[in-house]
Design a protein around this nucleic acid. Structure first.
Length: 551
DNA sequence: AAGCGTTTCAACCGCTCGACA
DNA sequence: TTGTCGAGCGGTTGAAACGCT
């Protein structure tokens, strides 16, 4: 009952809003038209010079009406608003026939979607929105419409313009497009794209990904459970084993993974709704000594985190497919796990890798940006033909870690020799682990253990152990988490950042399912009015506004 | 104030996709 | 299976606004 009342109030408000807007427009239009039949308004007159008329177009009744191009006038807006109010959205080509508006359907749709929709948020992007756009772009690339879905009230055009402007500005300033923490995502996406042959297909293949009948082999997570027993999370927190074991089962139904979609927007079917194919973030989980669980992008050292398991939102924010992939509380302009890592223009300064800066940079450097590498460099010695530079960042850090460990662990530097030199990238990875954390091998354990399953189901991905020229040391499943007597002997040797990222990505995707912790980024209250005004459903699963639309 | 370069943003264009006959 | 149409996406354009000299 309350919902019905709320819905009725919303509808009333929406109608009032539209009529008020329309009244204003019509009043202004009448005033201007009285002055001059050229139909201009205060804001339009600057544009009328460019108004163009298309060649005559056949409309109903055989009447030939030239289609107008160029800026819209208030009068045209009013006509369009009136039409949509009467007929709802869609069937845009009929607008011309029914309303006499001398605009093509595409133009009408664009005008409505970008300017006349009542749920549009005007004004500059807020810092939160800007941060979100960064994350989304890292996650999706130039999928403006999909990004707009995640930013209620914003249009794809707005986002696109913002991004292009920002990109141009930063490139001119010699800055990279992404800050480091976002850049990592972009790197993941690039690498995923390289593996798109299996990732995109798998994302849409439930037989492979196991979307609908997903079962996580318990053995894959025995290490996790084992460590969890040793390091139970604080009271009230979700146990790792529980959410791992639950997989995507209830309460996370498969539909829960689907991104909410604006009813007025259609995502092309060829694009998977699962962002996992290009949106997963590789995450290492580590229990700290205090029992809190750290999540961090695998490949980055353990000091690059602020994220603890204490904050479920934060935690989920870095899980694959999360819409809040970096910082669940996207209200913060700085991701919760933003790497306190200073990597100044490192990607085109490989010559400096030999003398890395301190691995514990100041907080002020958190937003120091990584310079995108020149194409020549990025392709050299990389498995990736389209290296985004993040691989270099990973390599850089591995070098850094190695260099810093060269001093303190010179006596231990033996396993590296065991690595075939034809796999030079490996060296930096050897000292990656945090010897303090018993779960420092979390990601390695999961991934390497899970690897055989993944590989068996995904034949296109070569086994790490079979990579030519690389001696791979698979993580030992029955290794005691407390067995720290010999760090070097238990170190997992990654075949290469690229390969391991792909494997890790794959394993996480398989383990959690894309969008497992998908957050509801859909402002149903804002958009539902428009959706239902056109007779459409909100489209959001378990959305109470959908239920109310039946009223 | 004028000139010029840059930024912003609305709009267009070409293309693809899905539905349907 | 093919063709048509409506819808929508992403890239691009171009004019006004803005900022600097």
């Amino acid at each position: 009952m309350v919902k019905k009342l709320l819905w009725a109030a919303s509808v009333a408000f929406f109608i009032q809003f539209l009529y008020f807007q329309q009244f204003q427009i019509l009043s202004l239009t009448c005033f201007v038209m009285n002055e001059d039949m050229s139909i201009t308004s205060e804001t339009d007159d600057r544009m009328t010079s460019k108004v163009d008329m298309d060649s005559p177009d056949e409309v109903s009744g055989g009447e030939s009406v030239p289609l107008k191009k160029g800026p819209w006038t208030s009068a045209e807006d009013a006509i369009l608003v009136d039409y949509v109010m009467t007929h709802g959205e869609g069937n845009w080509n009929a607008v011309q026939r029914h309303s006499g508006l001398a605009r093509c359907g595409k133009s009408c749709r664009l005008r409505w979607a970008n300017h006349l929709r009542p749920d549009l948020k005007k004004g500059a992007f807020t810092p939160e929105e800007e941060q979100r756009i960064l994350e989304l772009h890292a996650k999706m690339g130039n999928k403006w419409a999909r990004m707009a879905i995640e930013l209620p009230g914003r249009t794809d055009n707005e986002i696109k313009n913002y991004w292009n402007t920002r990109t141009k500005r930063r490139q001119r300033a010699g800055l990279p497009v992404y800050p480091p923490e976002i850049s990592f995502l972009a790197s993941q996406n690039k690498q995923n794209e390289e593996l798109g042959a299996f990732s995109s297909a798998d994302a849409q293949n439930p037989n492979v990904l196991g979307i609908n009948n997903f079962e996580i082999p318990a053995v894959e997570f025995k290490n996790l459970e084992y460590n969890h027993l040793l390091y139970p999370p604080p009271l009230g927190e979700i146990p790792v084993s529980s959410f791992l074991a639950q997989g995507h089962r209830a309460p996370y139904s498969s539909t829960y993974f689907l991104s909410p979609m604006h009813p007025s927007k259609r995502i092309r079917g060829s694009e998977s709704m699962f962002s996992g194919s290009n949106g997963d973030i590789l995450t290492s989980l580590q229990y700290q000594n205090d029992g809190s669980l750290l999540a961090q992008p695998s490949g980055f050292s353990s000091y690059s985190h602020n994220l603890t398991y204490d904050d479920h939102r934060s935690f989920s924010s870095v899980l694959p497919g999360s819409h809040a992939c970096l910082n669940g509380n996207s209200s913060s302009s700085e991701p919760t796990w933003a790497m306190k890592l200073d990597l100044p223009s490192l990607q085109n300064q490989t010559e400096n890798w030999g003398s890395p800066p301190s691995p514990l940079p100041s907080l002020e450097s958190a937003n120091i940006l990584i310079q995108s590498p020149p194409a020549g460099h990025s392709e050299s010695g990389s498995l990736s033909p389209s290296n985004s530079g993040l691989l270099d960042a990973v390599l850089y850090e591995s070098q850094t870690m190695k260099a810093s460990n060269d001093n303190s662990h010179q006596g231990k530097e033996t396993s590296g020799d065991a690595v075939n030199n034809s796999c030079p990238d490996l060296k930096g990875w050897e000292t990656y682990e945090d010897p303090i954390s018993p779960l420092s091998r979390f990601s390695a354990s999961v991934f390497s253990e899970y690897a055989p399953v993944s590989e068996s189901s995904l034949h296109e991905f070569p086994s790490m152990a079979t990579m030519p020229g690389c001696k791979i040391k698979q993580e030992i499943g029955d290794l005691s988490p407390l067995d720290e007597k010999d760090d070097t002997s238990n170190q997992t040797i990654f075949s290469s950042p690229n390969t391991q990222h792909a494997k890790n990505h794959l394993a996480f995707k398989d383990a959690f399912g894309s969008g497992f912790f998908d957050d509801c980024g859909w402002d149903c209250k804002q958009t539902h009015a428009v959706a239902t005004s056109s007779g459409q459903a909100c489209g959001h699963n378990s959305c109470s506004w959908d239920a109310m639309s039946a009223v």
